[in-house]
Every structure is written in structure tokens, then in C-alpha cells.
């Protein structure tokens, strides 16, 4: 049978006679059918709204800041980072995303600040407002600041999967580990769940 493809087809072994022809005919039918079915299926898929596929994202309203995002992502550091919706932020100088609730004084020194990698920078805007800027390359996605901001502040800081880093595993390590079931597939066209208003 391979003869047609081979350069030495002419002296390929004789095709066995008899009963095989019907089998070959059937098989050819099966193959043609499969190709037509597969083609049809793929055309339907390509036209479906979900064709472009999905990516993973965290629902900030469900997130409990357990910290597993920092350790369970296949990437190190994690593809999860803290995102800040400034439009929701109160711009407090005493930011509970930045500072611990129990402090000795109000300096920014490490014993007072939450972020383990010092990734949050407090930038003066105008009296008495300060912008909390997050240095994404330092952020490890531990969610400690998010916890502070959610408990004591406006909840303007929250965790999101950053798609410039995420490799979009078919089985997402952190989605599997997430105790709140907060991570789900979303359309690749709307890859973020950004907070826009007060909860």
C-alpha cells in the first residue's frame, strides 16, 4: 500500500487479492468520513464565540489572600502580582496595604511595613494624599498587602494573574490550590478582572 509514496513503487509486493478489497473500501469510507467530520467540527469551533480560548484569572471578590499564589505557580516568582485600582484608593498616608496595623511609630522601616520585598513605594501627590506605587518586578504575589488593604482600607489593592508572565497552563497550579475557588478560566478577550468600584 505504501507503494504510491515510494520511489520504488513499481516493484512493491503484490497487493493481496480477494477479501481485502471490501475492507479497504470500508476503511476509505471511515477515513473520508473522519476528515469531513473533523473539518466540520473545526469549522464550527472556529466560528464559535469561545474560539479564541481562555486564560486564567483571579476573582478579587472571592480571593482570601491565603498566600498560595506565591508558592504554587509553576513560575518562580509567581505570575500573580498585586494590582492597584487607583480610582478606588483613598490615597491615605497611613496606608494599611503598606503599613502594619501594629506598628512602632509610623516610619516606613521594615518592622512597620507589610511587604516582604518592599515592593510598595509611597509617592507624594499633594497634601495630604499619597500614591501607593507597586513595583511589579519585586512583587511575589503573596497578597499580604492585599489583606491589609481589604481589611482596613478600600480594597483597591488585589491580586491578578499577569498575562505577560503567565504561561497559561492547561491545568493551572494555583487554580487547583486556591482554597476559595477564586481562579477560573476567562475569555482571552477579557483577561483581567479589575476592580472598578467600591464593593
Amino acid at each position: 500500500m505504501a507503494g504510491k509514496l515510494l520511489p520504488m513503487a513499481d516493484d512493491a509486493p503484490e497487493q493481496p487479492q480477494g477479501g481485502r478489497t471490501r475492507r479497504d473500501f470500508l476503511l476509505a469510507g471511515v477515513r473520508t468520513g473522519s476528515v469531513v467530520a473533523a473539518g466540520g467540527l473545526l469549522t464550527i469551533l472556529a466560528k464559535a464565540p469561545a474560539a479564541a480560548g481562555t486564560v486564567w484569572q483571579i476573582d478579587p471578590d472571592k480571593c482570601t489572600q491565603c498566600g498560595l499564589c506565591a508558592t504554587n505557580c509553576v513560575l518562580q516568582p509567581s505570575a500573580v502580582k498585586c494590582v492597584h485600582t487607583y480610582a478606588m484608593c483613598g490615597y491615605c498616608k497611613l496606608c494599611f496595604g503598606l503599613l502594619k496595623d501594629k506598628r512602632t511609630g509610623n516610619t516606613l522601616s521594615v518592622e512597620n511595613s507589610r511587604c516582604p520585598t518592599d515592593a510598595i513605594k509611597r509617592v507624594f501627590v499633594e497634601d495630604p494624599y499619597y500614591e501607593m506605587h507597586i513595583e511589579e518586578n519585586l512583587c511575589i504575589g503573596c497578597g499580604i498587602c492585599v489583606k491589609g488593604c481589604t481589611r482596613f482600607g478600600n480594597g483597591s489593592m488585589y491580586l491578578q494573574i499577569r498575562h505577560d508572565r503567565c504561561v497559561n497552563c492547561n491545568e493551572c497550579g494555583i487554580a487547583r490550590a486556591c482554597p476559595a475557588g477564586a481562579i477560573s478560566r476567562v475569555s482571552v478577550k477579557t483577561p483581567y478582572k479589575l476592580k472598578t468600584r467600591h464593593a
Binding site: 518562580q76 521594615v110 518592622e111 516582604p116 518592599d118
Partner: peptide, 19 residues
């Protein structure tokens, strides 16, 4: 406080070096 600061610096340094 000083000890905390020293340990924190050390921890961060070794973490990023490790990465």
C-alpha cells in the same frame, strides 16, 4: 528593631539571589 531590619535584609537578599 535593628535585629529585625538586619534579618529582613538578609532574607530578602538571599531570596532574590536564590531566584
Amino acid at each position: 528593631k535593628k535585629r529585625i531590619r538586619r534579618l529582613d535584609l538578609q532574607v530578602r537578599r538571599s531570596f532574590f539571589r536564590g531566584q
